[in-house]
Simulated scan of single mutants.
Amino acid sequence: MTAQRQERNGGRGMIALRFRLVSIALWSSLGWVGLGVQACLPVPAEATTTERVVVNRYTGLAIEGYDPVGYFVDGRPEIGREDFEASEAGAVWRFRNEGNRASFVAHPDIYGPMFGGYDPTALARGVTVAGNPRFWLISEERLYLFGREANRDAFAADAPRVLREAKARWPELEQDLAQ
């Protein structure tokens, strides 16, 4: 996380992590009772599903900092570099090089993941689930991210049906997401 982003976020990510670690240590010291209570504590989510683009709530990075253009150019997920960032759709995107950054800035609608990075198989069921940048597929020249490998496989088996259902439900689901 850049110093500027830490300052903007007020260091909330580290504070939440420290609180969680202290809570775990405290409850663990209480033995079995501690384990029961500890299981009830909320676990911080890595990605938020209340935005139109899936963003890591602590870093502000879209698709966990992976280079969206890299899926098309390199044929695999590649972590972007802090030196090559761009802001688009309320998210910070990272790229491996200036060329990938320039391509994305010129055509974010082409290189950005479809449905803002939400899993299309989940959308087809009527729920928003953040896609994992490690489970991906390019279909009809669009990038899709999936929450689980099984969802990617189900999508690949019947992409036209899943896309038809996801596209039908997306406007209503997108409207419920924060602006």
Rank of each mutant, 00 (worst) to 15 (best):
P120Q: 00
T50I: 11
A91D: 05
S139E: 09
C40N: 12
V129H: 02
G147M: 03
F115Y: 01
T59E: 05
D109R: 15
V73Q: 09
E88H: 11
N100G: 04
H107A: 10
I15F: 12
D83F: 14
W93E: 02
I63P: 02
T48S: 08
S29Y: 11
F95P: 02
F104G: 03
E88Y: 07
L61A: 08
P133H: 03
D67L: 11
G11M: 05
P77M: 13
V54L: 08
N132I: 04
L30A: 10
G11Q: 11
R81W: 05
L21F: 15
R20A: 13
G36V: 04
A106T: 06
E64R: 03
R142F: 02
F115V: 05
G80K: 05
Q6D: 15
V105S: 06
P68E: 07
P133S: 07
S139I: 06
L21D: 12
S139Q: 09
V33K: 10
A62M: 01
A102V: 07
S87R: 09
T50C: 07
A25R: 14
A89L: 06
Y66P: 01
V105N: 06
D67K: 12
R81I: 01
A130R: 00
D109V: 14
G90Q: 04
Y111I: 05
L123R: 01
F146K: 00
R8T: 09
G90D: 09
D109W: 14
V127G: 04
I110C: 12
G90M: 05
T49P: 02
F104Q: 09
P68T: 04
W93H: 01
G117E: 01
G36L: 06
E51M: 12
E98N: 14
L35P: 06
V69S: 04
P108M: 09
V37F: 07
H107Q: 15
W93L: 01
A39I: 10
I63T: 03
G90F: 13
S139D: 14
F115R: 00
Y71A: 05
E46D: 09
S23H: 12
S139F: 10
G147H: 00
T48C: 04
E149M: 12
G31H: 13
N9I: 03
A45V: 10
L123K: 00
Q38I: 08
R57D: 06
R96D: 14
F135R: 07
R12V: 10
M114V: 14
I110W: 13
R125K: 07
D83K: 15
S29G: 15
A130H: 07
L17M: 10
F19D: 15
E149P: 07
W27N: 06
R81L: 15
R57N: 10
A124W: 02
P113V: 05
R125H: 11
L143S: 00
E82N: 08
P44Y: 11
R101T: 04
V22A: 14
P77D: 13
V127N: 01
E82H: 15
F115L: 04
Y118F: 04
Q6G: 15
V43L: 12
T59G: 06
S29H: 06
A25V: 12
R20M: 06
A106Y: 08
A89I: 03
F115I: 05
V53Q: 02
N132D: 10
G13F: 08
L35R: 06
L35V: 11
S139W: 13
R12C: 15
A124N: 01
S29I: 09
E7W: 08
A150R: 08
